[in-house]
């Protein structure tokens, strides 16, 4: 009888809970971490890659990011996903269509919150209309628009969304959030936010060393001259260079051995 209220998404349990939604959230809390920090002059998004291994072909991809977790949604919005990647792909597709649809109607980039709302409407639908499974995905949206400048949103499988200064989804999100709470400062700059994100990531990730094989990274800023949003998803080589600069790069095992 325990299975009575959790086989269908649309049925409340006697305690007033929707089990399928809670299971979806559980799935997400095991997924690779995605972490976002809102700075005064940009937004930083980083993600932990779970699928790794030296036989994995990383040569594909490039324009929208090479990885599995960070996607370019529109020129002013980057999304980081945690959960079932295939579900995320379909959501990212909808998000891209929504963004381009807005551009077609209004000849201007979609506001970040409006995009988050569009995706959440879709997610909410699957908690109510019969027979289907909800999206097993949480997203972080890092974006910029003229009305509210830089923004960071989080949305979960129930279709709830909220704005954040710094937040984290996926595995170890509790640890990361308390670290962020301690270290986040108002009026933080992008430069400092990059450091904060990388340091927090290195502390929460399962592996001890950070490298482009495990990390995805992106920054959204505004071009100083044109005032147009500039979304940059780092390529693996650029991530390694950045880690080097921040002093968080992988220790070369051979050198350590030689020293010992």
């Amino acid at each position: 009888m325990a299975r009575r209220y959790d086989s269908r998404t649309t049925i409340f349990s006697p305690e007033g809970r929707l089990y399928q939604i809670e299971y979806a959230m559980e799935a997400i809390s095991r997924a690779g971490t995605v972490l976002g920090v809102l700075a005064k002059d940009g937004v930083v998004l980083a993600a932990e890659k779970k699928v790794t291994g030296k036989l994995l072909d990383l040569s594909g991809g490039g324009y929208g990011g090479s990885g599995e977790k960070i996607y370019l949604v529109n020129r002013n919005i980057i999304a980081g996903v945690a959960g079932i990647t295939s579900d995320a792909n379909s959501l990212v597709n909808s998000a891209r269509s929504a963004a381009q649809g807005h551009l077609l109607s209004y000849d201007s980039d979609i506001p970040v919150e409006l995009l988050a709302q569009r995706i959440c409407n879709m997610k909410q639908g699957y908690t109510q209309y019969g027979g289907l499974r909800p999206f097993g995905v949480s997203l972080l949206y890092a974006g910029y628009d003229e009305q509210h400048q830089f923004q960071l949103y989080h949305s979960d499988p129930s279709g709830n969304y909220s704005g954040w200064k710094a937040t984290c989804i996926g595995a170890n999100n509790g640890t990361a959030q308390s670290l962020l709470k301690q270290e986040y400062k108002e009026d933080i700059s992008v430069k400092d936010a990059i450091g904060l994100v990388l340091r927090t990531m290195s502390k929460t990730m399962d592996s001890t060393t950070l490298g482009s094989d495990k990390l995805e990274f992106s920054v959204l800023t505004v071009d100083e001259v044109t005032k147009e949003p500039k979304a940059k998803i780092y390529k693996p080589a650029e991530i390694d260079a950045l880690l080097e600069k921040e002093g968080l790069a992988k220790k070369d095992d051979d050198t350590v051995m030689a020293a010992a």
């Binding site: 324009y63 929208g64 381009q100 077609l104």
Partner: peptide
């Protein structure tokens, strides 16, 4: 102009090249 921009943007983002 708007229709071509829409279709080219969709092509670029899905194809991951210009």
């Amino acid at each position: 102009k708007e229709l071509f921009r829409y279709r080219v943007n969709m092509y670029t983002i899905k194809e991951e090249r210009e």
